[in-house]
Amino acid sequence: MSVLVAEGLRKRFGANEAVAGVSLAVEPGEMLALIGPNGAGKSTCFNMLGGQLRPDEGVVRLGERDVTGMAPRHLAHLGVGRTFQITASFASMTVRENVQTALLAQARQAWRFWRAADAQHVAQAEALLSRVGMASQAARPAGVLAYGDLKRLELALALAGKPVLLLMDEPTAGMAPAERAALMALVRGIAREQGVAVLFTEHDMDVVFGHADRVLVLDRGRLIAQGTPAEVRADPRVRAVYLGTAA
């Protein structure tokens, strides 16, 4: 069955209906891309799925469970990993401590006041860092990482909760072409091996068409097309509102 199902999501900001009835489903191990022009409602949609926004109407289900409007921290404990368009990590900690903190949070061990934290979950943290290719930088402060490395650290943080679903908002924004491909290949590997469902937004068409199994196209708050990359690419409506000469 689907990992995530959204039905009839709507969100209005003042007079503007940002999302006007969106339904979607993500399957285990699937890479699903959500694309569309700026202002089409991608971020709003994403934030409703990630718990940052509560939908005005509609239902979000994670497996069998209704998680509509649930706070991000509860979703995290239910297996939703998240990366952000503007990278967010813990800048005052080392790379390893970042992951340790995420592991402590996931294990519900944040409310411990005595034993030193940097001796906890060490092996697990190192394993996660190896998984994303950051093991050699474990002792570096997160605040000085290069952009692409920050993105990979974010991925490790998102993986700390053994997610069933990864929500990635523009995972490769601001990266060079070679880095983009490497990161998406890594994500794809994780999706395949562990059956993690991945939903991502992206503006780089090489990334979308090269790595997504399925593509959803959003325009003015509605889904205007969905299908395989090839189908979406050939859709005249998608070409008109979004792809332009890029296809």
Binding site: G50, F84, A88, T101, A102, L104, R112, A117, Q120, E154
Partner: peptide, 23 residues
């Protein structure tokens, strides 16, 4: 220096990220 302190610093560094990892 215990988990509480790490978690607290995490919320200061990035509340968004802290919530997303379950804090």
């Amino acid at each position: 220096f215990a988990p509480f302190g790490f978690a607290l610093r995490a919320t200061r560094d990035s509340a968004l990220r802290a919530e997303a990892v379950g804090l």
